[in-house]
């Protein structure tokens, strides 16, 4: 998929653990793992909003388009 999730990078920048982020945004660690691994088919705006709020970043910092 040409959309890459850079959540790992942002988590490292903010020195935050996945479990911590999952608790803040209110999703399960399993779902966060799906998102991080790029297996997710879709991301809800509400989830994206919560991630941006928790990591104090923009959607573009998490999502990236790479041409195949």
């Amino acid at each position: 998929m040409p959309i890459v999730i850079n959540l790992d990078v942002m988590l490292a920048k903010r020195k935050m653990r996945s479990k911590e982020l999952a608790e803040i945004i209110g999703i399960t660690t399993a779902n966060l793992s799906i998102l991080k691994s790029g297996k997710a088919k879709a991301v809800r705006f509400s989830t994206l909003e919560a991630i941006c709020k928790a990591l104090e970043c923009q959607p573009a910092d998490i999502l990236e388009y790479i041409e195949e």
């Binding site: 779902n31 966060l32 998102l35 297996k39 997710a40 088919k41 879709a42 991301v43 989830t47």
Partner: peptide, 8 residues
């Protein structure tokens, strides 16, 4: 269903 399950 798969799409729904893989929507975060």
């Amino acid at each position: 269903q798969q799409e729904n399950e893989l929507t975060v």
